[in-house]
Structure formats: structure tokens, C-alpha cells
Write a protein that binds this DNA or RNA. Structure first.
Lengths: 219, 219
DNA sequence: TCATCCCTAAGAAATACACGTAGGCCAACC
DNA sequence: GGTTGGCCTACGTGTATTTCTTAGGGATGA
């Protein structure tokens, strides 16, 4: 059975050495090489793309997420494992979005790192417990936001105002709205002004976004 | 210390008895009552709302998600634990969205059920391993969709046009855009016209919606 | 009855939009 | 090596919208 070929990208020599020390005794792995920047990384892997790229988020010339995007596009056979000291939800989400197959914090154990490598090599995804918890929290938050968003602030508009906002956000121009509702175009304008003042919106753009956020119209 | 008050809702007598049998020996719990339908549930808990409502998704007259919504609104002190044979992602997402604090499959163990009850009673959330895995998968899928969605239709705009559309959809007026980009207002207007023509949009409203749909701006 | 909110409406100035036109630049093509 | 076409730039003109102010009439409730 052929060995799992690993490539390391981290801008700290010590970290790379540490990871190598952890992995050196694993017989089914082989470290193809290492790089301390995005540029160096792409230069080196062009010769022989690894099975797994272990990647730090913060790098001198770019960041792990951009590298992940390029890898996903240019080397779809290479799978990315993010190893980062940052466990913030945005980084995790964007890493996954960019195509990363796993995410570990830097204080992970040798066992977990090996588990991750094997899982990813076998086509699975791997997230450490702490990362999973963050992802779950985020999942719960998103689900709740999905529900709460429309109720965030009770809509302080009158029925007539909502009617006009709806028509406007659907794309009708003032004249069409005034015809539809059989009122003067001036009245339509006044209603819109009232809405903008009430909601403290500074532009019609925000008005439309408000209508979308509050599900007065579909996108 | 007062006992954790539990109420069971499931349309199968056997399941309710099974759960009761599992919980009866736990000294810090007390089963307040049980119901086999949504109607019966609300009639009974009106007298004494429980701390935790253990709820099946499928019920004869309604479903657990609707009950969860009502509970969340009408009895915010009562926390809902979903116990369901369905582990499909939509049910899980909608349960969380409706306000459920935990979700367990029906083949869960006594230990896990007790862990879930205690976690939820302490204000935490609890999802069994199998449910967590489904949520994580969903998280990953959503993150990927988030990335793929904008590629649905290739955006036929030039970089300058996208730049201007982005600023416009962020709420900047033409003058601000022309200042930012150090070009004439006329140019900004021309770009916007080109965009509208290319995309066959009839109003700025549609322009903004286009920008949102294609993730050029956030809502 | 008075205050308040809602719907209605208008005037005037500033701003934005629709549409046509056009020059400079650059890359691709024959 | 000129031509074509796309892109970015810009203006003129006429129309529409926005911004700000003012205001009457009806409903509602203290």
C-alpha cells in the first residue's frame, strides 16, 4: 500500500518541525515537503501534488483560505486540512466553503492529527471536537436567526405604508403605484418618505433591503 | 433541590411507557404527565408547565415542530427535547429553528437521555452524536452551497461594473461612488445603464435584487 | 375637546435615471 | 498594420425620483 503523501505549509519553522516530529513515526505517511508561504507552496507542489496539504490560516503573503480555494480548483485530488490557532467561526466557515476537508486547532494531539489525516485521505471530513462544537453552535445560531430575523423588530409601519413598500420593492415605479392604488403620485412619495424617516434609512437601496429582510417581498 | 419536571408527548403508549421506565429510577426527575396528541398536551401542561417537554415529531393531530413553536412562544420557561425516529436534516433544522434545545434519535441510550435532560435543564443544548454528525454534514453542505450558488449563472459584468454595482447596492449614492472611484458621476451613471441593459433589468430595484442574489452584496 | 396618528396632497430644489453619442485604450484578428 | 470589438471614460437632454416643508380631513382615545 502506498504511503499518504503530506505537504506542510506554515510560516513558523518550529511549528513545521513539531508537526514533522509528530508524523515521522507514522509508517503510512510521508512528508513530501514544506513551505512557509503561499508562493513557495505552489512552486513546490507543482512538481508533485500531495494527497494532503496541511495548512495554516495565517501566512505572510496570503492566507490559508485563498490557498485552499486555489488548491480546490487547480489540484482537486489534493485535500486540505487546516491547522490553525484561530477557531473563530468565520475562519471555519470560510475554510469549509473554500473546500477544506478538515479543521484542527493547533493544540490538537498527535492521535487526533493522525485520525484527521486518515479520515481525510479516505474521503471523509474531519473536525476536532472543539471545532465541531463551534460549528454546531453556529448551526444553532443560524437556525434561530432564520426564525427570528423576520421578527427582529416588529414592523412599525402602517398597513398603507407596507402596501406601498411592497409594491415599490417589487419593482413598480411611483406612477404605477399611484395608479394601482388610485392615489396621487405625491402621496406615494410622501408615504415613502415617512417609511424612510421611521426606519432611519438613508437610501432607497436600504429601503429595498429592509423589505427583503423583513420578508415583505421575495428576493 | 427541586426535581426536574418532565412531560412526555408521544402517540405510542409503549414508547411513553418505555421512556418512563428509563427515567423512573432517576431521583432528580419527576414525570408530571404525558399526552398522545398536541391538543391533549396543551390542555394538560396549562395547569403546570414542565421544565422539559420530551416530544415526538410525528403526532396524530399536529407535529412536534408546531408544538415546539407554541411552547417557545407561550411557555418560554419550558424547554423542548425532541425524541424522534426521524433523523432527517430538515426535521432537525426546523426543530432547532422552532426553539428545541435538544434532539435525540429514538434508539438513544438511557445515559444519553439523562445527559440530554440535565444539559437542557442547565440551559445548554444537547444533540446526540448521530444528530451532531447530521448537523455537521449540513453545515458543510451549506458552506459549500454558499460558495457554489454565485456561480449559478456566470456574471457577465466587467470588473468595473461589478465594482460600481457593489458600491451602489451597498447604499452609496452616485456622487459618493464617483468620489470613491475618482470618476465622473456621468461615468457612474453610464456603468449603471450598461449593467441594466446587459442584465435586462427594468429598475434599480431589480438591480439591487440581482446584486443580492449573486452575493455581490450582503442583505 | 384636544392631541395624536394616519392618509392624503402639493411646491421647489437637488439628485438620479434613460437613452443616445463618443473619444481613448488595448487586445485580438486577418 | 489596419480593423474590429470590448471596456472605461464622459456629456447632453428630457424625465423621474428624492428631499424637505407644509397642510387638510378623518379616526381614535385621553
Amino acid at each position: 500500500m502506498s504511503k499518504i503523501r503530506i505537504f506542510l505549509v506554515d510560516d513558523h519553522q518550529l511549528v513545521r518541525d513539531g508537526i514533522k516530529a509528530l508524523l515521522i513515526s507514522a509508517e503510512d505517511l510521508i512528508i513530501l515537503g514544506e513551505a512557509s508561504s503561499g508562493k513557495e507552496c505552489f512552486e513546490k507542489i507543482a512538481l508533485e501534488p500531495p494527497d494532503i496539504l496541511i495548512l495554516d490560516i495565517s501566512l505572510p503573503d496570503t492566507n490559508g483560505i485563498e490557498i485552499t480555494k486555489r488548491i480546490t480548483n487547480e489540484y482537486p485530488e489534493t485535500r486540505v486540512l487546516i491547522l490553525s490557532m484561530y477557531t473563530n467561526e468565520d475562519f471555519i466557515f470560510n475554510s469549509v466553503k473554500a473546500g477544506a476537508r478538515g479543521y484542527l486547532p493547533k493544540n490538537t494531539s498527535r492521535e487526533e492529527l493522525l485520525s484527521a489525516i486518515h479520515a481525510i485521505y479516505n474521503g471523509e471530513e474531519f473536525f476536532s471536537d472543539s471545532i465541531s462544537r463551534i460549528m454546531l453552535k453556529s448551526y444553532v445560531r443560524k437556525a434561530k436567526e432564520d426564525d427570528l430575523a423576520p421578527q427582529r423588530g416588529p414592523i412599525p409601519l402602517t398597513t398603507r405604508e407596507i402596501e406601498i413598500l411592497k409594491l415599490f420593492a417589487e419593482g413598480f415605479i411611483n406612477k404605477e403605484i399611484s395608479d394601482k392604488l388610485d392615489i396621487s403620485i405625491r402621496t406615494v412619495e410622501t408615504h415613502k418618505n415617512h417609511i424612510m424617516k421611521k426606519l432611519e434609512l438613508k437610501s432607497t437601496v436600504e429601503l429595498i433591503k429592509y423589505a427583503i429582510r423583513n420578508k415583505i417581498v421575495e428576493i
